[in-house]
């Protein structure tokens, strides 16, 4: 760990101004990702501005019926907030799917959004990585890619975004409130994170020195919603694939019809993946097992899996259809029998 200066920020504007003026300065919130990276040498700031005492810790009702969550609200406190549990259960479930009880007590809402990838090569400074060192090359391509992207990746980077919470916020069409040196701006969560393209070092559209001060949730929308995480362990593991979904079914007519669906996927791309193609198939369709699979297939048409993660395509397909079945009460389609199949 390189030596660095340490300052405790007294107010958000001061923190933003301090970091803006120092190209190698960083904000420190919950620390669960940054302190990890300081030890690994992945982050090498010369100044750490600690924002833990900023008063960005309120969860407040908005006039439009939505909710504003301060950026320094801890993940566990957000998940336990009665309004979030009642009106945004997929957000509560996504938060509770992440990390561990201890980590959620430290991790903040703003910091969770800005987590960096868990790509093992990104985290290992002894291997080349374009995200860590632009132009160095991508070690994941041709390497260990179990947790890597199948959608929206580039020749320079196949990393995934590790957050569960961000996937839920993407399905919820949340907005991020950002304070910069020139003032405040609002960014849709769906626009916050980038695809890697030829600049994988840039995770988000934020400029250096910009600070997330709050998240805003639109008023609760009708329908059933949930968050489902598929992982190698039963807990305390990053997602292989996750699905945040809300489905609103009109049951008034002769046959039920899907009025609206919002789906976001985790573990499959460099950013939380809003599944617009799947949503388009669902909108106006009858909720059946076949419809759900068709929706999943529409989204996965663009999938470009790597040698190490081909399984993610059927896994994502199964996860989407399974979640939609659960939310609509439609029986799930089982894959055809593979008796006496073998796995080599």
């Amino acid at each position: 760990m390189n030596p660095f200066d340490y300052e405790r920020a007294a107010d958000a504007a001061g923190a933003v101004s301090t970091v803006t003026d120092r190209p190698d300065a960083v904000f420190l919130a919950g620390g669960t990702n940054l302190v990890d990276h300081l030890k690994l040498g992945v982050a090498e700031p010369d100044l750490v501005v600690d924002i833990n005492r900023l008063e960005l810790t309120e969860v407040e009702a908005l006039d439009d019926g939505g909710l504003r969550i301060g950026a320094m609200v801890r993940n566990s406190d957000a998940a336990a907030d009665p309004r979030i549990r009642r009106d945004y259960p997929l957000l509560a479930r996504a938060l509770l799917s992440g990390a561990s009880g201890q980590l959620r007590n430290a991790a903040t809402m703003g910091g969770n959004l800005l987590q960096r990838t868990r790509c093992v090569y990104f985290q290992d400074t002894s291997t080349p990585c374009n995200k860590r060192e632009p132009g160095a090359g991508c070690s994941a391509i041709g390497g260990y890619t179990r947790y890597h992207a199948i959608l929206g990746a580039s020749a320079d980077c196949v990393a995934t975004h590790p957050s569960d919470m961000a996937v839920a916020l993407t399905a919820l069409d949340a907005t991020v409130v950002v304070l910069g040196a020139t003032g405040e701006r609002r960014i849709s969560v769906t626009e916050l994170h980038r695809l890697p393209g030829d600049r994988p070092e840039q995770d988000t559209v934020l400029e250096h020195g910009e600070l997330i001060t709050a998240l805003e949730l639109p008023p609760p929308r009708p329908g059933a919603s949930t968050y489902r995480k598929i992982r190698d362990r039963a807990s305390y593991a990053f997602a292989l694939v996750s699905v945040a979904a809300r489905v609103d079914v009109d049951t008034a007519g002769h046959a039920p019809v899907i009025r609206e669906a919002a789906i976001a996927l985790g573990g499959v791309a460099h950013k939380p993946w809003r599944a617009r193609a799947a949503e388009a198939v669902l909108r106006g369709a009858e909720p059946t097992a076949e419809t759900f699979l068709a929706a999943a297939d529409a989204e996965l048409e663009a999938a470009e899996p790597l040698d190490g993660n081909r399984f993610k395509v059927p896994m994502t397909r199964g996860a989407i259809s399974s979640v939609l079945a659960e939310l609509t009460g439609v029986p799930e389609a089982l894959p055809e029998s593979t008796t006496e199949d073998t796995h080599e």
Partner: peptide
């Protein structure tokens, strides 16, 4: 009173 991983916290944060 809250459980935390003390390895991922800078000591100065908890002054």
């Amino acid at each position: 009173g809250r459980r935390l991983n003390s390895c991922l916290a800078l000591a100065l944060t908890h002054d």
